[in-house]
């Protein structure tokens, strides 16, 4: 194992980091947990001229929760800390589950939710739930700050919406309302510890006359995590009966566009979209009804 050669910087403030990013230009790469970056570099897929480490910037670590403002996950908050965070487990159990089911113990002790998103793998475990919950990413650069809905963040496998000089500094998730339920479901080829071959995140809002809002996102079945709009249309405004849920699963299957790769065939992925969407809708519904 030999990493390619690069320059290393460890800024201690966001300002310093933004300046470095400007100075270093296109060859610069940000380092959070390193669990994706170092693997890519080790395999010669990435040869950055310089690496700017973010973990020394204290303000990026924080996880905060406010019943009105919702949840803010800092860019360098560890997957393990998100998975174990008392407020997240209580108010956002599907986010905790997504973080907990990412990779393995050591990777969760190093890697970050933000890194998982920025890496923009179609299979990213944390994306579908956050997308379903309408999360936004906070992006800062030397020239300003912007908020972007997460569903506009993914641009292709390994590609995100960050422009040169920009840093994703935090993820914001709205406070869960009453009647809301969220579920994360995934499946992989190995038993328990694995990268997902298909993953599904679902949020439903249940009112008296049934489901009045729904967001369904599918991972690893398209170049970016995709929204299952046709499936959503089938459940929106309906009671979530087994038949409705079943139909939504089939609709999601039909609109998904998976490929065949080393992890699964397109055909199996499609079938699993139906199963997981159905299971996620059922679990989200049950959770919503409990709230």
């Amino acid at each position: 194992m030999t990493l390619p050669k690069f320059e290393y910087f460890a800024p201690e403030s966001l300002d310093e980091a933004q300046q470095l990013l400007l100075d270093q230009g296109v060859g610069a790469h940000l380092l959070a947990g390193g669990t994706d970056l170092l693997v890519k570099m080790n395999h010669g897929l990435l040869k950055p001229a310089s690496v700017i480490a973010l973990k020394h910037i204290k303000e990026l670590e924080a996880i905060t929760y406010d019943p009105k403002e919702g949840l803010k996950i800092g860019a360098t908050a560890l997957l393990a800390d998100v998975a174990a965070h008392a407020d997240i487990r209580k108010h956002y159990p599907a986010i905790a589950a997504g973080a907990h089911e990412t990779a393995n113990v050591q990777i969760r002790n190093m890697g970050t939710v933000a890194g998982n998103l920025c890496n923009a793998a179609p299979s990213a475990d944390n994306a579908p739930t956050l997308l379903a919950m309408d999360a936004e990413v906070e992006i800062k650069s030397a020239t300003g700050e912007r908020r972007l809905p997460l569903d506009q963040f993914f641009k292709g496998p390994g590609q995100n919406a960050l422009a040169s000089g920009e840093i994703l500094t935090a993820i914001h998730v709205p406070a869960p309302g009453s009647g809301e339920g969220v579920s994360y479901q995934h499946i992989s080829a190995r038993g328990k510890v694995d990268i997902s071959a298909v993953c599904v995140g679902v949020m439903v809002h249940m009112a008296e006359n049934g489901c009045d809002d729904v967001r369904i996102f599918l991972g690893a079945v398209a170049p970016v995590p995709m929204r299952a709009a046709k499936a959503e249309a089938l459940v929106r405004g309906k009671q979530l009966t087994e038949e409705t849920i079943e139909a939504a699963g089939i609709a999601a299957m039909e609109e998904s566009q998976p490929i065949t790769d080393v992890r699964s065939s397109a055909d199996y992925r499609k079938k699993m979209v139906a199963v997981l969407t159905r299971r996620a809708l059922a679990e989200a519904r049950d959770r919503a009804l409990k709230r």
């Binding site: 194992m1 290393y8 460890a10 380092l31 390193g34 669990t35 170092l38 693997v39 690496v51 480490a53 973990k55 393990a80 113990v105 050591q106 990777i107 002790n109 190093m110």
Partner: peptide, 19 residues
């Protein structure tokens, strides 16, 4: 390659020494 850093288990193969 697992070691503990500040008490947490990490993969030393994915950790830069400078970090």
């Amino acid at each position: 390659c697992t070691v503990l850093v500040d008490g947490r288990s990490v993969s030393s193969c994915l950790t830069l020494a400078l970090e």
